[in-house]
Computed example of a mutant assay.
Amino acid sequence: MEGQVEAVLVSEFCEFGEMNLSKTQLGSGTFGCSHYRRRCKIRAPCCDEIFDCRHCHNEAKNSLETNPAHQHDIPRHEVKKVICSLCGTEQDVQQYCISCGVCMGKYFCAVCKFFDDDISKNQYHCNECGICRTGGKENFFHCKNCGCCYSKLMEDGHRCLEMAMHRNCPVCYEFLFDSTEKISVLPCSHLIHFECLKEMELHHRYSCPICSKSICDMSKLWKKLDEVIASTPMPEIYRSKMVWILCNDCGAKCEVQFHIVAHKCLNCNSYNTRQTQGAPTASCSTNVVEMVR
């Protein structure tokens, strides 16, 4: 039935004279799904079912309605068969249909078995990553230690973090390496989805969810906290109380005067700190004294 429907579509193209277009343009932008514009579908090697793309497969097979025992992702490099969207011919993976000759994707990668008609994304295949990426190969460099591609704009100041992208986003927990969403690199070198980062900022969260380091210049806020603390004297009973703190930004440990609002690092002046149980070299009994002193 699917082949018959597609055959009608081909006849419609003929009727409106679109068959006069080149094979590259024929049907371009007309077929595909919410993820990609392309003129073919794929047969999943894992479940032998037909889907518009690998994302359509993964969404369907990992939905809440699917039995957990049957949930799975498609092995993208193992796709062997594609179905032309114009004539319905099933065939081996290739860029041009063996039956009607139409180009099934202006961008085609034989390694990833990937088709896409929207070449404005400037797709390219990274041999080191082993997958296709967007943005133009000339604009990115691959860091072997991090195991992923970064913008050349940050090449000079790049700080390596081993297998940085081979982790889940710390907010939404989607695997970052093959995510289709924009990814941001924090100053601490941890990675996070751009939209997840924006969501954090909307909720006034300005520290890395992984290491707790500040994600931007917080100096203006620190000055504001200086003013708040100066205008908020503590009761007499707490004025001599000292506590040990650990700075999330520089890692320094120092002893400071207790304040209900915040504690300032004496090394880097950051208020991104946390109270610890006592002096770094203190004994267990001394720790208790430090906490109540």
Rank of each mutant, 00 (worst) to 15 (best):
F108I: 03
E65L: 15
I245D: 02
L21I: 07
C84W: 11
S11F: 02
I131Q: 08
I229M: 14
D156P: 09
C47Y: 06
H204T: 05
K253G: 00
K213I: 01
C132S: 14
F16V: 12
Y271A: 03
P233A: 03
D118F: 00
I215N: 01
K182H: 11
E18P: 00
L86V: 15
F177E: 11
F31R: 05
C126G: 05
C160E: 15
S214M: 05
F114M: 08
S219Y: 11
F258H: 09
T66Q: 15
P187K: 07
A282Q: 10
E128L: 13
T89G: 02
V288G: 06
V243P: 01
S179K: 04
C126H: 04
S231T: 14
T276Y: 00
E155V: 08
C216S: 13
A279R: 07
K224A: 15
S219V: 12
F115P: 04
G32A: 04
H57C: 03
E162P: 04
M200H: 08
L153G: 00
M200N: 08
I215V: 14
C143D: 03
I74W: 10
K61I: 02
T66P: 00
H142V: 00
T66I: 08
L266I: 12
F31G: 01
Q94H: 10
V10F: 15
Q4D: 14
S184N: 06
E290T: 10
S231R: 15
S63Q: 00
S207T: 13
L221Q: 14
N287A: 06
N122I: 02
F16D: 08
W244F: 10
R133M: 14
C188M: 08
T232D: 10
L153I: 07
G157P: 01
D226L: 07
E155M: 07
T30V: 13
C284T: 13
R293C: 04
C100N: 05
P280Y: 09
C188P: 02
L186D: 12
I183Q: 02
S184V: 01
R39H: 06
F114D: 10
I42Q: 06
E199R: 15
Y96V: 07
C143R: 11
M242Y: 13
Q123P: 07
S85V: 05
W244K: 02
D249E: 03
Y238A: 05
H35I: 00
Y238W: 09
Q94S: 10
K198E: 15
N58Y: 01
S179N: 12
E18D: 13
